[in-house]
Design a protein around this nucleic acid. Structure first.
Lengths: 200, 200
DNA sequence: TTCATAAGTTTCTCCTGTAAACATGGAGGA
DNA sequence: TCCTCCATGTTTACAGGAGAAACTTATGAA
Protein backbone atom coordinates (compact mmCIF):
# COMPACT_ATOMS: atom_id res chain seq x y z
CA UNK A 1 0.00 0.00 0.00
CA UNK A 2 3.06 2.27 0.09
CA UNK A 3 3.40 2.94 -3.62
CA UNK A 4 4.28 6.55 -3.01
CA UNK A 5 7.89 5.51 -2.53
CA UNK A 6 9.99 4.48 -5.50
CA UNK A 7 10.63 1.11 -3.86
CA UNK A 8 13.79 1.39 -1.84
CA UNK A 9 16.68 -0.88 -2.57
CA UNK A 10 15.98 -2.90 0.52
CA UNK A 11 12.52 -4.32 0.66
CA UNK A 12 12.10 -4.41 4.41
CA UNK A 13 10.51 -7.81 4.83
CA UNK A 14 11.04 -9.61 1.58
CA UNK A 15 10.92 -13.03 3.16
CA UNK A 16 7.38 -12.51 4.37
CA UNK A 17 6.38 -10.84 1.11
CA UNK A 18 7.65 -13.79 -0.90
CA UNK A 19 5.73 -16.18 1.31
CA UNK A 20 2.55 -14.21 0.89
CA UNK A 21 2.94 -14.04 -2.86
CA UNK A 22 3.60 -17.76 -3.00
CA UNK A 23 0.53 -18.47 -0.89
CA UNK A 24 -1.61 -16.45 -3.26
CA UNK A 25 -0.17 -18.29 -6.23
CA UNK A 26 -0.61 -21.61 -4.48
CA UNK A 27 -4.27 -20.83 -3.89
CA UNK A 28 -4.62 -19.94 -7.56
CA UNK A 29 -3.02 -22.90 -9.26
CA UNK A 30 -3.50 -25.47 -6.49
CA UNK A 31 -0.56 -27.36 -7.81
CA UNK A 32 2.47 -25.30 -6.82
CA UNK A 33 3.61 -25.30 -10.42
CA UNK A 34 4.66 -21.67 -10.00
CA UNK A 35 8.31 -20.86 -10.54
CA UNK A 36 10.55 -19.00 -8.14
CA UNK A 37 11.15 -16.39 -10.83
CA UNK A 38 7.44 -15.74 -11.08
CA UNK A 39 7.15 -15.34 -7.33
CA UNK A 40 10.02 -12.85 -7.45
CA UNK A 41 8.46 -11.00 -10.37
CA UNK A 42 5.08 -10.65 -8.67
CA UNK A 43 6.76 -9.50 -5.51
CA UNK A 44 8.59 -6.88 -7.52
CA UNK A 45 12.15 -7.99 -6.95
CA UNK A 46 14.84 -9.50 -9.12
CA UNK A 47 14.70 -13.19 -9.85
CA UNK A 48 17.75 -13.89 -7.72
CA UNK A 49 16.54 -12.08 -4.63
CA UNK A 50 14.59 -15.04 -3.18
CA UNK A 51 17.81 -16.99 -2.90
CA UNK A 52 18.87 -14.68 -0.09
CA UNK A 53 15.97 -16.07 1.95
CA UNK A 54 15.40 -19.59 0.66
CA UNK A 55 18.01 -22.09 -0.38
CA UNK A 56 15.92 -23.16 -3.35
CA UNK A 57 12.36 -23.51 -4.54
CA UNK A 58 11.68 -26.54 -2.34
CA UNK A 59 12.88 -24.66 0.69
CA UNK A 60 10.16 -22.09 0.10
CA UNK A 61 7.58 -24.85 -0.37
CA UNK A 62 8.61 -26.43 2.91
CA UNK A 63 8.22 -23.13 4.70
CA UNK A 64 4.73 -22.74 3.25
CA UNK A 65 3.89 -26.23 4.47
CA UNK A 66 5.28 -25.47 7.92
CA UNK A 67 3.14 -22.37 8.23
CA UNK A 68 0.20 -24.45 7.05
CA UNK A 69 0.67 -26.93 9.87
CA UNK A 70 0.87 -24.12 12.40
CA UNK A 71 -2.33 -22.60 11.07
CA UNK A 72 -4.08 -25.97 10.92
CA UNK A 73 -3.14 -26.65 14.51
CA UNK A 74 -4.52 -23.31 15.60
CA UNK A 75 -7.77 -23.92 13.73
CA UNK A 76 -8.22 -27.32 15.31
CA UNK A 77 -7.35 -26.15 18.79
CA UNK A 78 -9.71 -23.24 18.55
CA UNK A 79 -12.57 -25.33 17.20
CA UNK A 80 -12.10 -27.90 19.94
CA UNK A 81 -11.95 -25.30 22.70
CA UNK A 82 -15.27 -23.85 21.62
CA UNK A 83 -16.93 -27.17 22.37
CA UNK A 84 -16.80 -27.79 26.08
CA UNK A 85 -18.98 -30.85 25.84
CA UNK A 86 -17.95 -34.48 25.47
CA UNK A 87 -14.65 -35.70 24.12
CA UNK A 88 -16.57 -37.19 21.25
CA UNK A 89 -17.97 -33.79 20.36
CA UNK A 90 -14.51 -32.29 20.62
CA UNK A 91 -13.16 -34.93 18.32
CA UNK A 92 -15.79 -34.12 15.73
CA UNK A 93 -15.13 -30.40 16.09
CA UNK A 94 -11.40 -30.89 15.54
CA UNK A 95 -11.91 -33.18 12.59
CA UNK A 96 -14.38 -30.81 11.00
CA UNK A 97 -11.93 -27.96 11.51
CA UNK A 98 -9.24 -29.96 9.75
CA UNK A 99 -11.50 -30.79 6.83
CA UNK A 100 -12.72 -27.19 6.62
CA UNK A 101 -9.14 -26.01 6.57
CA UNK A 102 -8.39 -28.46 3.78
CA UNK A 103 -11.35 -27.23 1.76
CA UNK A 104 -10.51 -23.55 2.29
CA UNK A 105 -6.80 -24.02 1.59
CA UNK A 106 -6.81 -27.04 -0.65
CA UNK A 107 -3.60 -26.22 -2.48
CA UNK A 108 -1.77 -25.61 0.76
CA UNK A 109 -3.24 -28.71 2.40
CA UNK A 110 -2.20 -30.86 -0.53
CA UNK A 111 1.27 -29.39 -0.40
CA UNK A 112 1.51 -30.09 3.34
CA UNK A 113 0.93 -33.78 2.76
CA UNK A 114 2.76 -34.10 -0.52
CA UNK A 115 6.20 -35.46 -1.15
CA UNK A 116 7.32 -31.98 -2.24
CA UNK A 117 7.18 -30.93 1.39
CA UNK A 118 9.68 -33.53 2.46
CA UNK A 119 9.61 -33.58 6.24
CA UNK A 120 12.86 -35.50 6.48
CA UNK A 121 14.58 -32.51 4.90
CA UNK A 122 13.47 -29.95 7.45
CA UNK A 123 13.32 -30.53 11.20
CA UNK A 124 11.18 -27.43 11.69
CA UNK A 125 8.59 -28.72 9.25
CA UNK A 126 8.69 -32.11 10.91
CA UNK A 127 8.20 -30.57 14.31
CA UNK A 128 5.30 -28.43 13.16
CA UNK A 129 3.57 -31.48 11.70
CA UNK A 130 4.17 -33.48 14.85
CA UNK A 131 2.86 -30.68 17.03
CA UNK A 132 -0.38 -30.63 15.10
CA UNK A 133 -0.59 -34.40 15.29
CA UNK A 134 -0.14 -34.18 19.04
CA UNK A 135 -3.37 -32.21 19.39
CA UNK A 136 -5.23 -35.29 18.28
CA UNK A 137 -3.17 -37.61 20.43
CA UNK A 138 -3.86 -35.61 23.59
CA UNK A 139 -7.57 -35.72 22.94
CA UNK A 140 -7.41 -39.49 22.52
CA UNK A 141 -5.55 -39.84 25.80
CA UNK A 142 -8.08 -37.66 27.55
CA UNK A 143 -10.89 -39.72 26.09
CA UNK A 144 -9.32 -42.91 27.32
CA UNK A 145 -8.80 -41.43 30.79
CA UNK A 146 -12.39 -40.38 31.19
CA UNK A 147 -13.63 -43.66 29.80
CA UNK A 148 -15.11 -42.33 26.58
CA UNK A 149 -12.78 -44.29 24.38
CA UNK A 150 -11.98 -47.97 24.63
CA UNK A 151 -8.71 -48.78 26.39
CA UNK A 152 -7.09 -50.32 23.30
CA UNK A 153 -3.56 -49.53 22.18
CA UNK A 154 -3.51 -45.77 21.71
CA UNK A 155 -1.39 -46.05 18.58
CA UNK A 156 -4.23 -47.92 16.94
CA UNK A 157 -6.67 -45.18 17.88
CA UNK A 158 -4.26 -42.53 16.67
CA UNK A 159 -3.59 -44.25 13.38
CA UNK A 160 -7.28 -44.85 12.77
CA UNK A 161 -8.24 -41.30 13.70
CA UNK A 162 -5.57 -39.55 11.74
CA UNK A 163 -6.07 -41.77 8.73
CA UNK A 164 -9.79 -41.14 8.85
CA UNK A 165 -9.60 -37.38 9.20
CA UNK A 166 -6.86 -36.94 6.62
CA UNK A 167 -8.52 -39.38 4.26
CA UNK A 168 -11.84 -37.54 4.50
CA UNK A 169 -10.07 -34.25 3.94
CA UNK A 170 -8.47 -35.54 0.76
CA UNK A 171 -11.73 -37.00 -0.47
CA UNK A 172 -13.47 -33.74 0.29
CA UNK A 173 -10.84 -31.72 -1.56
CA UNK A 174 -11.15 -33.95 -4.59
CA UNK A 175 -14.89 -33.44 -4.56
CA UNK A 176 -15.49 -37.12 -4.06
CA UNK A 177 -17.79 -36.53 -1.14
CA UNK A 178 -19.86 -33.81 -2.67
CA UNK A 179 -20.70 -35.31 -6.01
CA UNK A 180 -23.23 -37.54 -4.31
CA UNK A 181 -24.99 -34.27 -3.48
CA UNK A 182 -25.21 -35.08 0.22
CA UNK A 183 -23.83 -31.82 1.57
CA UNK A 184 -21.62 -32.23 4.61
CA UNK A 185 -23.51 -35.28 5.81
CA UNK A 186 -21.08 -37.96 4.64
CA UNK A 187 -18.22 -36.45 6.62
CA UNK A 188 -20.20 -36.46 9.83
CA UNK A 189 -21.61 -39.89 9.09
CA UNK A 190 -18.18 -41.32 8.38
CA UNK A 191 -16.74 -39.80 11.54
CA UNK A 192 -19.56 -41.31 13.54
CA UNK A 193 -18.91 -44.73 12.06
CA UNK A 194 -15.35 -44.50 13.28
CA UNK A 195 -16.33 -43.07 16.63
CA UNK A 196 -18.78 -45.91 17.16
CA UNK A 197 -15.81 -48.22 16.85
CA UNK A 198 -13.68 -46.11 19.17
CA UNK A 199 -16.16 -45.47 21.93
CA UNK A 200 -17.32 -47.98 24.45
CA UNK B 1 18.24 -57.45 -24.60
CA UNK B 2 18.52 -57.12 -28.38
CA UNK B 3 21.65 -55.03 -28.55
CA UNK B 4 22.95 -57.04 -31.48
CA UNK B 5 20.98 -54.78 -33.79
CA UNK B 6 22.13 -51.22 -34.39
CA UNK B 7 18.80 -49.95 -33.08
CA UNK B 8 16.47 -49.54 -36.02
CA UNK B 9 14.97 -46.17 -36.75
CA UNK B 10 11.61 -47.31 -35.50
CA UNK B 11 11.64 -48.57 -31.97
CA UNK B 12 8.78 -51.01 -32.20
CA UNK B 13 6.94 -50.25 -28.98
CA UNK B 14 8.34 -46.98 -27.75
CA UNK B 15 5.22 -46.07 -25.86
CA UNK B 16 5.52 -49.10 -23.60
CA UNK B 17 9.28 -48.66 -23.31
CA UNK B 18 8.85 -45.07 -22.18
CA UNK B 19 6.31 -46.13 -19.58
CA UNK B 20 8.61 -48.79 -18.24
CA UNK B 21 11.54 -46.42 -18.03
CA UNK B 22 9.38 -43.87 -16.27
CA UNK B 23 8.16 -46.47 -13.79
CA UNK B 24 11.73 -47.39 -12.96
CA UNK B 25 12.64 -43.75 -12.49
CA UNK B 26 9.53 -43.18 -10.40
CA UNK B 27 10.52 -46.04 -8.13
CA UNK B 28 13.97 -44.54 -7.82
CA UNK B 29 13.22 -40.93 -6.98
CA UNK B 30 9.74 -41.39 -5.49
CA UNK B 31 8.96 -37.87 -6.41
CA UNK B 32 8.50 -37.94 -10.18
CA UNK B 33 10.97 -35.09 -10.53
CA UNK B 34 12.38 -36.79 -13.62
CA UNK B 35 12.24 -34.87 -16.87
CA UNK B 36 10.79 -36.12 -20.11
CA UNK B 37 14.16 -35.65 -21.74
CA UNK B 38 15.77 -37.93 -19.21
CA UNK B 39 13.15 -40.60 -19.82
CA UNK B 40 13.85 -40.31 -23.54
CA UNK B 41 17.59 -40.47 -22.99
CA UNK B 42 17.40 -43.58 -20.86
CA UNK B 43 15.11 -45.20 -23.38
CA UNK B 44 17.65 -44.42 -26.07
CA UNK B 45 15.61 -42.10 -28.24
CA UNK B 46 15.72 -38.42 -29.04
CA UNK B 47 14.21 -35.98 -26.60
CA UNK B 48 11.34 -35.17 -28.93
CA UNK B 49 10.30 -38.76 -29.55
CA UNK B 50 8.08 -39.04 -26.44
CA UNK B 51 5.89 -36.27 -27.80
CA UNK B 52 4.68 -38.67 -30.49
CA UNK B 53 3.11 -40.74 -27.73
CA UNK B 54 2.31 -38.33 -24.93
CA UNK B 55 1.04 -34.81 -25.25
CA UNK B 56 3.33 -33.62 -22.48
CA UNK B 57 5.02 -34.75 -19.31
CA UNK B 58 1.78 -34.72 -17.32
CA UNK B 59 0.13 -36.91 -19.89
CA UNK B 60 2.75 -39.56 -19.23
CA UNK B 61 2.29 -39.18 -15.50
CA UNK B 62 -1.45 -39.67 -15.85
CA UNK B 63 -0.89 -42.83 -17.83
CA UNK B 64 1.40 -44.15 -15.11
CA UNK B 65 -1.28 -43.37 -12.56
CA UNK B 66 -3.94 -45.08 -14.63
CA UNK B 67 -1.86 -48.24 -14.89
CA UNK B 68 -1.30 -48.01 -11.14
CA UNK B 69 -5.04 -48.02 -10.46
CA UNK B 70 -5.51 -51.03 -12.71
CA UNK B 71 -2.75 -52.88 -10.91
CA UNK B 72 -4.03 -51.85 -7.49
CA UNK B 73 -7.50 -53.08 -8.40
CA UNK B 74 -6.11 -56.43 -9.49
CA UNK B 75 -4.12 -56.79 -6.28
CA UNK B 76 -7.12 -56.02 -4.14
CA UNK B 77 -9.44 -58.30 -6.07
CA UNK B 78 -6.99 -61.14 -5.94
CA UNK B 79 -6.33 -60.74 -2.22
CA UNK B 80 -10.03 -60.65 -1.48
CA UNK B 81 -10.79 -63.69 -3.59
CA UNK B 82 -8.23 -65.75 -1.68
CA UNK B 83 -10.23 -65.21 1.48
CA UNK B 84 -13.52 -67.03 1.16
CA UNK B 85 -14.47 -66.36 4.75
CA UNK B 86 -16.49 -63.47 6.19
CA UNK B 87 -17.00 -60.12 4.56
CA UNK B 88 -15.07 -58.61 7.42
CA UNK B 89 -12.09 -60.81 6.60
CA UNK B 90 -12.38 -59.89 2.96
CA UNK B 91 -12.41 -56.24 3.84
CA UNK B 92 -9.23 -56.61 5.82
CA UNK B 93 -7.60 -58.60 3.02
CA UNK B 94 -8.45 -55.92 0.48
CA UNK B 95 -7.28 -53.13 2.74
CA UNK B 96 -4.02 -54.91 3.48
CA UNK B 97 -3.49 -55.47 -0.23
CA UNK B 98 -3.95 -51.78 -0.86
CA UNK B 99 -1.52 -50.82 1.87
CA UNK B 100 0.98 -53.43 0.71
CA UNK B 101 0.71 -52.08 -2.81
CA UNK B 102 1.33 -48.59 -1.49
CA UNK B 103 4.41 -49.73 0.41
CA UNK B 104 5.81 -51.68 -2.54
CA UNK B 105 5.10 -48.92 -5.05
CA UNK B 106 5.18 -45.86 -2.88
CA UNK B 107 6.20 -43.43 -5.61
CA UNK B 108 3.50 -44.68 -7.90
CA UNK B 109 0.89 -44.72 -5.15
CA UNK B 110 1.71 -41.17 -4.18
CA UNK B 111 1.49 -40.14 -7.81
CA UNK B 112 -1.90 -41.82 -8.18
CA UNK B 113 -3.35 -39.71 -5.41
CA UNK B 114 -1.46 -36.52 -6.11
CA UNK B 115 -2.63 -33.45 -7.87
CA UNK B 116 -0.16 -34.17 -10.67
CA UNK B 117 -2.38 -37.00 -11.77
CA UNK B 118 -5.36 -34.74 -12.32
CA UNK B 119 -8.33 -37.01 -12.83
CA UNK B 120 -10.47 -34.24 -14.25
CA UNK B 121 -8.03 -34.02 -17.15
CA UNK B 122 -8.29 -37.63 -18.23
CA UNK B 123 -11.52 -39.65 -18.38
CA UNK B 124 -9.59 -42.91 -18.66
CA UNK B 125 -7.70 -42.18 -15.47
CA UNK B 126 -10.91 -41.17 -13.75
CA UNK B 127 -12.60 -44.38 -14.86
CA UNK B 128 -9.70 -46.52 -13.70
CA UNK B 129 -9.78 -44.89 -10.27
CA UNK B 130 -13.53 -45.29 -10.03
CA UNK B 131 -13.34 -48.93 -11.06
CA UNK B 132 -10.92 -49.62 -8.24
CA UNK B 133 -13.11 -47.69 -5.83
CA UNK B 134 -16.06 -49.82 -6.92
CA UNK B 135 -14.37 -52.97 -5.63
CA UNK B 136 -14.72 -51.57 -2.14
CA UNK B 137 -18.26 -50.38 -2.71
CA UNK B 138 -19.43 -53.79 -3.87
CA UNK B 139 -17.99 -55.43 -0.79
CA UNK B 140 -19.79 -52.93 1.40
CA UNK B 141 -23.07 -53.63 -0.36
CA UNK B 142 -22.57 -57.35 0.03
CA UNK B 143 -21.81 -56.87 3.71
CA UNK B 144 -24.97 -54.90 4.19
CA UNK B 145 -27.02 -57.53 2.35
CA UNK B 146 -25.79 -60.40 4.47
CA UNK B 147 -26.19 -58.36 7.64
CA UNK B 148 -22.53 -58.04 8.52
CA UNK B 149 -22.50 -54.27 8.21
CA UNK B 150 -24.96 -51.87 9.74
CA UNK B 151 -27.67 -50.63 7.39
CA UNK B 152 -26.54 -47.01 7.51
CA UNK B 153 -26.15 -44.81 4.46
CA UNK B 154 -23.74 -46.66 2.24
CA UNK B 155 -21.99 -43.45 1.24
CA UNK B 156 -20.99 -42.99 4.84
CA UNK B 157 -19.53 -46.48 4.98
CA UNK B 158 -17.77 -45.94 1.69
CA UNK B 159 -16.31 -42.61 2.71
CA UNK B 160 -15.18 -43.95 6.07
CA UNK B 161 -13.67 -47.07 4.57
CA UNK B 162 -11.87 -45.44 1.72
CA UNK B 163 -10.61 -42.63 3.91
CA UNK B 164 -9.36 -45.14 6.44
CA UNK B 165 -7.58 -47.39 3.98
CA UNK B 166 -6.03 -44.57 1.98
CA UNK B 167 -5.10 -42.69 5.12
CA UNK B 168 -3.37 -45.74 6.57
CA UNK B 169 -1.56 -46.30 3.30
CA UNK B 170 -0.23 -42.76 3.32
CA UNK B 171 0.80 -43.00 6.97
CA UNK B 172 2.50 -46.30 6.24
CA UNK B 173 4.39 -44.88 3.27
CA UNK B 174 5.58 -41.95 5.31
CA UNK B 175 6.85 -44.36 7.94
CA UNK B 176 4.57 -42.87 10.54
CA UNK B 177 3.20 -46.25 11.52
CA UNK B 178 6.50 -48.07 11.79
CA UNK B 179 8.51 -45.67 13.84
CA UNK B 180 6.63 -46.79 16.91
CA UNK B 181 8.23 -50.17 16.21
CA UNK B 182 4.93 -52.02 16.29
CA UNK B 183 5.33 -53.94 13.05
CA UNK B 184 2.13 -54.28 11.04
CA UNK B 185 0.01 -54.32 14.17
CA UNK B 186 -1.25 -50.73 14.07
CA UNK B 187 -2.71 -51.19 10.59
CA UNK B 188 -4.72 -54.20 11.63
CA UNK B 189 -5.66 -52.58 14.91
CA UNK B 190 -6.83 -49.42 13.19
CA UNK B 191 -8.85 -51.38 10.66
CA UNK B 192 -10.51 -53.29 13.45
CA UNK B 193 -11.42 -50.08 15.23
CA UNK B 194 -13.21 -48.95 12.10
CA UNK B 195 -14.80 -52.33 11.49
CA UNK B 196 -16.12 -52.37 15.03
CA UNK B 197 -17.97 -49.21 14.13
CA UNK B 198 -19.17 -50.61 10.82
CA UNK B 199 -20.34 -54.03 11.96
CA UNK B 200 -23.42 -54.74 13.95
C1' DT C 1 5.74 -50.06 -57.14
C1' DT C 2 4.21 -45.93 -55.11
C1' DC C 3 3.35 -43.00 -51.67
C1' DA C 4 0.76 -41.44 -47.51
C1' DT C 5 1.64 -41.60 -42.95
C1' DA C 6 3.22 -42.96 -38.36
C1' DA C 7 7.17 -42.54 -35.79
C1' DG C 8 11.78 -40.77 -35.23
C1' DT C 9 15.34 -36.82 -35.38
C1' DT C 10 17.23 -32.09 -35.62
C1' DT C 11 16.94 -27.55 -34.73
C1' DC C 12 15.19 -23.57 -32.52
C1' DT C 13 13.17 -20.42 -29.09
C1' DC C 14 11.83 -19.26 -24.66
C1' DC C 15 11.99 -20.17 -19.86
C1' DT C 16 13.83 -21.86 -15.46
C1' DG C 17 17.17 -22.73 -11.68
C1' DT C 18 21.03 -21.27 -9.72
C1' DA C 19 25.90 -19.59 -9.27
C1' DA C 20 29.03 -15.56 -9.19
C1' DA C 21 30.17 -11.02 -9.13
C1' DC C 22 28.69 -6.59 -8.11
C1' DA C 23 25.83 -2.68 -5.76
C1' DT C 24 23.51 -0.45 -1.94
C1' DG C 25 22.40 1.34 2.31
C1' DG C 26 21.74 0.83 7.29
C1' DA C 27 23.90 -0.09 11.88
C1' DG C 28 27.64 0.00 15.01
C1' DG C 29 32.21 1.46 16.32
C1' DA C 30 36.29 4.98 15.82
C1' DT D 1 30.58 12.56 12.31
C1' DC D 2 32.35 9.39 9.30
C1' DC D 3 33.84 4.65 7.94
C1' DT D 4 33.33 0.29 7.15
C1' DC D 5 31.00 -4.20 7.32
C1' DC D 6 27.51 -7.10 5.85
C1' DA D 7 22.83 -8.43 4.96
C1' DT D 8 20.09 -7.83 1.22
C1' DG D 9 19.45 -6.53 -3.08
C1' DT D 10 20.73 -6.64 -8.67
C1' DT D 11 23.06 -8.03 -12.96
C1' DT D 12 25.09 -11.26 -15.71
C1' DA D 13 25.97 -15.83 -17.25
C1' DC D 14 25.20 -20.53 -18.29
C1' DA D 15 23.39 -25.25 -18.34
C1' DG D 16 19.54 -27.55 -18.93
C1' DG D 17 14.29 -28.48 -19.99
C1' DA D 18 9.68 -27.87 -22.45
C1' DG D 19 7.78 -27.99 -26.49
C1' DA D 20 7.00 -26.37 -31.53
C1' DA D 21 8.32 -26.86 -36.37
C1' DA D 22 10.49 -28.77 -40.04
C1' DC D 23 12.80 -32.64 -41.70
C1' DT D 24 13.73 -37.94 -42.33
C1' DT D 25 12.79 -42.81 -42.59
C1' DA D 26 10.23 -47.14 -42.79
C1' DT D 27 6.11 -49.47 -43.54
C1' DG D 28 1.89 -51.14 -45.20
C1' DA D 29 -2.11 -50.43 -48.14
C1' DA D 30 -3.61 -49.43 -52.89
Amino acid sequence: MSETQERPYHHGDLRRALIETALVMLAADQNWTFTLREVARRTGVSHAAPYKHFRDREDLLRELARLGFVQLGESMTQAMSLTQSSVREQFIAGAQACIDFALCNSGLYRLMFSADADKSMDPDLHDAAMKTFTILLQLLEEGQRDGSFRPVNIDALAAASWAQVHGLAMLAINGQLLEEKVGSEPVLAALNVLLDGMCQ
